[in-house]
């Protein structure tokens, strides 16, 4: 049963579906990026590199860099918090760990819009935080907590933290406790043990978490739209505008193409990190 064609037959419907509704549309985007925009917003079928050049125009490239900065910072914060949480879960008694992990990941599976909206409820001018400040006797003007870059970062970290916890917990829970005990017995401090043993062995989890949060943040459109206010623009919002308001599809396609390339590059980097870590395991005792 392993050499015949029947498994292929089972896979065919799904693979056709993915080809027709993922591979071909994405390929279409890549082609679209090289066409000219028509005068009235349509597509003119002549080849051009103008759209791609426009992505690197300072006006737009600035937005790209800002998005990358926000995504990078969100991913870094999420990794620190997520790793700490995963480490803490792995330090709890074994039988409690699945439950803790379940509740850490649960918010991730509830509606993204609702989770983002929860921060508006918390931070708006009549929100809970302002009310607590008033109740504590503060009557002055509070700085705006909503519609800032920081709020967008908080929203992204909040939404993607559960995934980082999950990604970091996997290698942490697989670690053999005898390895760290041996390190301690040989006289290494807890900090040295963590830095020289635990951290290097769990780097793949952190890399997975970082890449995931970065990729989903840089192309994010909901969080900047809701928590960043009307004027705040990230790449996702720019793409959205090209397709739904500015009607410049080739430029929107070019922006998406760069997004896809960034994503592929990061995924490859992550694969390299994972490979190095698994190769390093056999040699680390040298």
């Amino acid at each position: 049963m392993t050499t015949d064609r029947r498994p292929l037959l089972l896979m065919t419907p799904a693979l056709l579906w993915l080809t027709a509704l993922m591979v071909i549309p994405c390929a279409l985007i890549l082609v679209l990026a090289f066409f000219r925009r028509g005068i009235y917003g349509g597509i003119e079928y002549t080849w051009t590199l103008e759209n791609l050049a426009l992505v690197f125009d300072p006006l737009y490239f600035r937005i790209f860099l800002k998005s990358a900065g926000i995504a990078g910072l969100s991913a870094a914060i999420a990794c620190v918090l997520g790793y700490a949480a995963a480490y803490a879960i792995a330090a709890m008694p074994r039988r409690r760990q699945p439950t803790l992990l379940f509740f850490a990941v649960l918010p991730f599976w509830s509606n993204y819009l609702v989770r983002t909206y929860a921060w508006i409820v918390l931070l708006n001018r009549e929100g809970l935080i302002v009310n607590i400040a008033r109740w504590l006797g503060y009557n002055g003007e509070l700085p705006s907590m909503l519609y800032t870059e920081q709020t967008v970062i908080v929203g992204l970290v909040y939404n993607y933290l559960p995934f980082v916890i999950l990604a970091c917990y996997a290698p942490l829970s697989r670690m053999n406790p005898e390895v760290t005990e041996a390190s301690r017995d040989l006289g290494a401090s807890a900090w040295t043990t963590f830095r020289r043993i635990t951290l290097p062995m769990t780097v793949p989890g952190i890399a997975t978490g970082f890449v995931f949060v970065f990729v989903l943040s840089i192309g994010n459109f909901v969080t900047p739209a809701l928590l960043g206010g009307g004027q705040f623009q990230m790449i996702g919002n720019l793409v959205y505008a090209q397709f739904l308001t500015a009607n410049d599809w080739p430029f929107g396609a070019a922006l998406s193409m760069v997004l896809i390339l960034v994503m592929l590059g990061l995924l490859m980097a992550q694969a390299v990190v994972a490979e190095r870590a698994s190769n390093g395991k056999g040699q680390s005792d040298g």
Partner: peptide, 18 residues
């Protein structure tokens, strides 16, 4: 694996275009 990691916005505009 791709459908789980591809940014929603990219898949969304790709499908809209098609």
């Amino acid at each position: 694996f791709a459908p789980m990691i591809i940014p929603d916005i990219v898949l969304a505009i790709a499908l809209l275009s098609m």
